[in-house]
Design a protein around this nucleic acid. Structure first.
Lengths: 234, 234
DNA sequence: TAGAAAACCGAGCGCTTGCTCGTTTTTCCG
DNA sequence: CGGAAAAACGAGCAAGCGCTCGGTTTTCTA
């Protein structure tokens, strides 16, 4: 069971992808035009504090219930100071959503060639990478998952399209595996939609698994086994 | 594949469980002490309008973003009129959460005896019943799933405990099936936690499946096949 | 180290929110 | 039909919201 896990474990995604400061440097670059603070290291550091606080507070009471006064207190900045980093509260939401979407896509499309050539290994790699990435960026993914609703259609679309893009990556691998006679799958895209929630459960219900002391790698192994028993041709 | 679906399909849950008016009659009974409107049919009818509107508006913009003025307009009642049916906005949330929790538990514990005796049939029945129930009460379950967070710990506990109760029902059947030599399952409670998100996906991402024209029964069959291939001993 | 530029500050503005309460309308029944 | 009980009404209140802007502090450089 889960043979070849070693190969799949071999190369992970770039760790810079999932660390707060590098992410905020990328956000800064993307929003250079509207962020009024000039010095990059100051801007990056404060963005990290702001977004860290947004993620933390939103996880507790939700984004809408998080006020800018809460945020000021948590970051040590003032009301006015905050507004040098974003033009309005919605911008904050969009910053996070787009960053989650692009990071997820970048990480999942970056499989090593050796893995890409073998659909079984590739699926295994995708499962492991998705779970590890969302483990490292748990607050980000929870935020994108929970707060996307009820917002400017533009923001919602980012989240929905990202979800579909991820699903499509899985569907492609499934289709390839079927063509190669490795997988037995009735409806490829429906099966991909069944795998997705197995991956999402890890970050959406993270506290449940923490309480049960379920390890990430144990969860990865469980999902992998569960999926492979279901679709692998032996 | 999915043989014996006929038996499992034989008896469904009581349809009164999932219809708006009967549910609101139950809510009325539970909150008789605090609801100031005396006549039962008036109270039930208006409760149905109020809660229907809450579910509808919350699905669009979230519970917190739904104002009592929105609610007044949607129901045709006045601000003051609304307050004859609940003491504050949180009560509305608690009403819905508790009703979802008790209904889910009642429906899932109500398997026919013939089904209960066979762990494979029982698991099949649980999957089908869960998906059908959440299909019929989709707005309710989405509400409980999305809005539970960031609220008086009491309300959150209702949701979390309900989730665990459901999971336990599945775990029990899995354990029985393992004991009877019908299922091969490494970790019973971990497997139960993997089945749960497969069921939840149906109502959480309902619009995605609607867009793809995936039928409920097709989804039930897909989940059943997926799970059984994974754990059934052939 | 002086002075300009960059960063930060926070009281205050207009507006919305949950909720109340004195009043009006509707319902019911002798 | 009349009058009391039940139900519904909606303007108004205090509190809290996102956001601004004139002023202060910090940082950099010449």
């Amino acid at each position: 069971m889960v043979t070849g896990a070693a190969e799949a474990r071999g190369r992970r995604y770039d760790p810079n992808l999932a660390s707060l400061e590098p992410i905020c440097a990328r956000i800064l670059a993307r929003h250079r035009a509207t962020i009024r603070v000039q010095k990059s290291h100051v801007a990056t550091a404060n963005l990290a504090r702001i977004i860290g606080a947004v993620l933390h507070l939103s996880a507790q009471k939700g984004f809408h219930q998080t006020t800018l006064r809460d945020l000021a207190e948590a970051t040590g900045l003032s009301m006015g100071g905050l507004y040098s980093y974003f033009e309005n509260k919605n911008t904050l939401l969009v910053m996070i959503l787009t960053e989650v979407a692009t990071t997820a896509e970048a990480a999942l499309r970056d499989a090593p060639d050796a893995v890409k050539n073998d659909s079984v290994l590739h699926l295994r790699w995708l499962i492991a990478t998705h779970i590890r990435l969302t483990e490292d960026m748990q607050p980000w993914f929870v935020f994108a998952y929970m707060e996307a609703k009820g917002f400017p259609a533009s923001a919602r679309r980012i989240a929905v399209e990202s979800e579909l893009a991820t699903e499509q990556i899985f569907a492609d691998v499934l289709a390839r595996g079927v063509a190669q006679g490795r997988f037995r799958v009735g409806d490829v895209s429906l099966t991909a939609s069944l795998i997705k929630p197995l991956l999402q459960d890890w970050y959406v219900k993270r506290s449940k698994y923490r309480k049960r002391r379920t390890d990430v790698e144990v969860y990865i192994a469980a999902v992998t086994t569960f999926v492979e028993r279901s679709i692998l041709i032996r």
